[in-house]
Amino acid sequence: MKWVRWTLLAQLLFFGGWAAREEWNRQGPVIVLETAPVDPRDLLSGQYLQLSYRISRLDGVRVTGDLPRNAGAAVAVRLVPAPDRPDGRTVWRAAEIACPGPAIPVRQDPAQGVWVTGRFTARRFGGGLGWVEYGIERYYFNEARVKEFASRRSGAFLVECTVGRDGRLAIRRLVE
């Protein structure tokens, strides 16, 4: 039964490699984003909050190149800090969209803004230039915390994210 060992090895390598990549990506700079949560249920991964972000809606951003004609096209969005909240926190806003995106440096200087990657989904939703998804639209949590999340007011969350070294955003935690 050699094939069993080879198959297991392939599976372990895949999952190990995937974990290593995600751990490597967690080493990038940390930024805070504004959200609007809802609460559906995913059969694959249990409870999660469906999140949408202000940076997803491309209002008043500079366009470099042409906006994609097709949904699903890869784009890069430059985020800049915007310290204009009444509570004094610094959240990050979308300033520029590029398609095709520039080569993203492994180490980005947050003071100059950070480039993140996403997928252009549609022009039709919500007006503006369009809509971008970043792969951080779900926040998974334990079933034991359902009540805790149900009692929170929609839109009151901020999300702390890591900007991966490949430009992918990853959620670290929710902050009030």
Binding site: Q11, F15, W18, A19, E22, L44, S45, G46, Y48, R119, E133, G135, I136, E137, R138, Y139, Y140, A170, I171
Partner: peptide
């Protein structure tokens, strides 16, 4: 492995295209 993909998605807070898993 399908459960593992779900677990990885949950642990690292990943979401996206449902086809790839």
């Amino acid at each position: 492995p399908l459960a593992g993909i779900g677990l990885w998605g949950q642990v690292y807070q990943l979401s996206g295209d449902p086809l790839m898993p």
